[in-house]
């Protein structure tokens, strides 16, 4: 049996030199959080392309599907990116949960402490715990959906998901949780590691400005997809085809994913 296993089991680990994993795990927790927060900003700009119109959003989805490189859509490329994000997400969740209150005594203690202290950074951390807990479920469900059905990302596909699939409350909740969690998390990274070396008040103002910006952008984007989904409800399942491709019949099959067999929602009832 390895020496380390024996000394850890017998509770003598502290009697020998500390191992280096706590340091690595701490860096990993921050690193995965940084990656996810920055990814979420990029993600928000990509999905917000719908505010510029259906075609710009379609172009971005086709870009990530490798359409403009390979001449056809390779949805597995999207699945690969989702898989990478999912791995980082699970790692971050696993590392960050170590800091959560893990029993009733701890939960009660931190809640009373934050209530009595009226200290903004302490309160923000409690929010981070709650939003992080929500994201365990919401982000996992979303990532699974994107991993398995990447072809459903698009102006109509995403619009249908919000309206006809009735998922807008899910996305609204997730938007609020992500923007709060990520914004607070980035601020905390800055004060935790001392970079950027700006006054905390400045960092906090920047944090709130960014959170507000992405939240408003997210709400507008969600609204835009809901509107498209509502208007498209009679053609649920149909994929978006830009006019310039629809006008060229020889390109249609190559450029656009075939519409699923689902019947318009009205016909099923």
């Amino acid at each position: 049996m390895p020496y380390e296993t024996i000394i850890v089991q017998t509770g003598l680990a502290e009697r020998v030199a500390k191992n280096r994993w706590p340091a690595r795990l701490d860096v990993l927790q921050s690193g995965t959080g940084l990656f996810l927060a920055l990814f979420m900003w990029g993600h928000m700009f990509f999905v917000a392309s719908i505010l510029l119109g259906e075609t710009p959003m379609w172009v971005i989805t086709k870009f990530f599907e490798g359409h403009f490189i390979f001449g056809s859509s390779h949805y597995w490329l999207v699945s690969c990116v989702v898989a990478l994000v999912a791995v980082v997400f699970v790692a971050h969740a696993g590392l960050a949960v170590r800091k959560f209150p893990i029993n009733y005594r701890q939960l009660r203690a931190i809640r009373a402490h934050s209530r009595a202290m009226r200290h903004e950074d302490t309160t923000l951390w409690v929010w981070q715990v709650y939003t992080g807990f929500l994201l365990f479920f919401f982000a996992s469900a979303h990532l699974y959906q994107m991993l398995v059905w990447p072809e459903k990302i698009g102006p109509y596909g995403s619009g249908d998901r919000m309206w006809s699939d009735g998922l807008w409350p899910f996305y609204l909740t997730m938007l609020l949780a992500v923007e709060l969690h990520g914004g607070i998390g980035l601020y905390r990274l800055a004060v935790k590691w001392g970079w950027p070396d700006a006054p905390r008040a400045t960092l906090k103002k920047l944090k709130w400005a960014l959170t507000a910006f992405f939240f408003v952008l997210g709400l507008a984007t969600l609204g835009a997809y809901m509107k498209i989904g509502f208007e498209h409800r009679a053609h649920y399942g149909e994929r978006y085809t830009p006019a310039w491709i629809a006008a060229e019949p020889q390109n249609e099959n190559r450029a656009v994913a075939p519409a699923p067999q689902a019947a318009p929602s009205g016909e099923n009832e």
Binding site: K18, P22, A23, K99, H119, D121, T122, R188, V191
Partner: peptide
């Protein structure tokens, strides 16, 4: 590191910074 290199030490600090305030 032997003294503060774990979650009871510096890596347990969650940077709530009430200490500083």
């Amino acid at each position: 590191y032997d003294m503060i290199g774990d979650d009871t030490g510096v890596f347990g600090c969650m940077s709530l910074l009430a200490c500083h305030d």
